[in-house]
């Protein structure tokens, strides 16, 4: 590092500070608005953090499932939506990742086939960029108006952006793998398809796996949020209890979500550690 780079470094920080001030100004963010007359509600809500509800906070009809059972079933639904979406996006991600990989579609093709593969490559890249730029909730809203409420469209809404991201990451993984083994097989007469399945894919699997588990964690969070749009995941119950001012129940659901995501977080960390070998 030299003097010039430390000056540039300062420039980056100063630019960030200016951007922050511009944003605060554009949004009219005033610290006074934070301390509103709602302080009692804020206190009520956060004081329940230490005592989440273990049972319903209102009278429920006889025979209603206990709160714990309801919470667990909501958590299970959250997992189901995320896992179903994971299945689609894994298949889509691997397939489109192959089609979006420049080393295979552009470098390995020859002759007239190359026109087709390059067009396909461009098309797939554009498509993947488009589907991952639209937030999963926007996909959900789009499907909601196009098809009406249906669990399948919720799963597809979750899966689309995830597929786009997995395809991007996966194509980058393929492009960055060492090519020596691939060249050897190509030189020995292997077709690009053989090279893909028997050389490149096995090499990228550990990284793909580790990343997919991270994506599963993100899917769980998104799946919980889908509840706000009427699907039976955790978000649905958070919204309902919060609007009824049952703050203890809200914390019960929040802690469940916390446990759910934290477990997957630890799980995927462990997998990453094991795969480093």
């Amino acid at each position: 590092m030299n003097r010039a780079s430390s000056g540039q470094r300062r420039m980056v920080i100063i630019t960030l500070a200016i951007a922050g001030v511009w944003a605060a100004n554009a949004l009219k963010l005033n610290p006074i608005d934070l301390v509103t007359n709602n302080t009692s509600i804020i206190y009520d809500f956060f004081s329940r953090a230490l005592s989440p509800a273990m049972d319903y906070e209102s009278d429920v009809p006889l025979g209603t499932k206990p709160l714990i059972v309801k919470t667990l079933s909501a958590a299970w639904q959250t997992i189901l939506f995320a896992a179903a979406a994971m299945g689609i996006s894994l298949i889509g991600g691997v397939l489109f990742g192959f089609l979006a990989s420049s080393s295979l579609m552009i470098e390995s093709a020859r002759g007239t086939v190359k026109y087709i593969t390059v067009t396909l490559y461009g098309l797939v890249r554009f498509l993947m960029a488009l589907i991952r730029s639209i937030h999963e909730l926007l996909w959900a809203v789009l499907f909601l108006v196009a098809f009406g409420i249906s669990e399948l469209s919720a799963v597809i809404a979750l899966a689309l952006p995830c597929t786009g991201i997995l395809a991007k990451i996966f194509s980058e993984l393929i492009d960055e793998t060492s090519r020596s083994a691939a060249h050897a097989i190509r030189g020995g007469g292997g077709t690009p398809i053989q090279v893909y399945f028997f050389v490149l894919l096995p090499q990228t699997i550990p990284d793909l796996l580790a990343y997919s588990f991270y994506r599963f964690e993100c899917l769980l969070r998104s799946s919980a949020v889908l509840g706000f749009f009427g699907y039976p995941t955790l978000g649905f119950y958070i919204a309902a209890s919060f609007e009824n001012l049952f703050y203890g129940e809200v914390w019960c659901y929040l802690y469940t979500l916390f446990l759910l995501v934290a477990i997957v977080d630890i799980w995927s960390n462990q997998i990453r550690a094991e795969l480093k070998l």
Partner: peptide, 8 residues
């Protein structure tokens, strides 16, 4: 902080 989604 990070397990609770932004939307929530």
């Amino acid at each position: 902080l990070r397990t609770i989604p932004e939307y929530v």
